[in-house]
């Protein structure tokens, strides 16, 4: 699946570069130079993020997540799972199967929503990278607002489902 996506991405990018080059050589070279500069700018931050994510995947193992998230459904466990989801960086293909295991263990929908939504929306570990793109202030505000949104979504889902 992932490799398939990558092949499509690279093909599209190469076709676009080829067309662009054919129409205007100079502009294309500018774009390629900008690409290189961008990579130079973010490479270090990226390495840092990848290191942090690989550590997080180890420390937030399935067993430990189950301990954290537990089975109660009060406000406190919604908050805890939102916090765990904010700090942990777990890709969707691991997180959703895990969430369905939680569901089978009778974890409430609101706790599951808090966990998956904060994983997606809030990024404590990716903050250094986000800061680089958005600036510290906006990156900080975006993450705080996203956390609040996550809690609201979790509570509403708890009421509906």
């Amino acid at each position: 699946m992932f490799l398939f996506q990558a092949v499509i991405f690279y093909t599209i990018a190469l076709i676009l570069i080829a067309i662009s080059f054919w129409v205007d050589k100079k502009k294309t070279i500018t774009a390629l130079e900008k690409t290189l500069n961008e990579f130079r700018k973010i490479a270090g931050f990226f390495l840092l993020i990848i290191i942090l994510v690989s550590l997080s995947l180890f420390f937030f193992s399935k067993e430990r997540l189950m301990e954290f998230i537990g089975t109660s459904s009060d406000f406190k466990s919604v908050l805890v799972s939102a916090l765990v989801g904010s700090i942990a960086a777990i890709p969707g293909f691991i997180a959703f199967p895990l969430a369905s295991v939680f569901r089978k263990m009778n974890v409430s929908w609101s706790v599951i929503a808090a966990f998956t939504n904060s994983l997606m929306l809030v990024g404590v570990l990716t903050f250094p990278l986000e800061k680089k793109y958005l600036g510290t202030k906006l990156a900080l505000i975006r993450n705080i607002v996203s956390f609040v949104i996550t809690i609201i979504i979790a509570l509403i889902i708890g009421l509906i489902l």
Binding site: A6, I12, A31, L32, K34
Partner: peptide, 12 residues
């Protein structure tokens, strides 16, 4: 696998 083509396309 993902990032390089994405960055190139944003720069184009």
């Amino acid at each position: 696998l993902i990032l390089p083509p994405v960055i190139v396309v944003t720069k184009l």
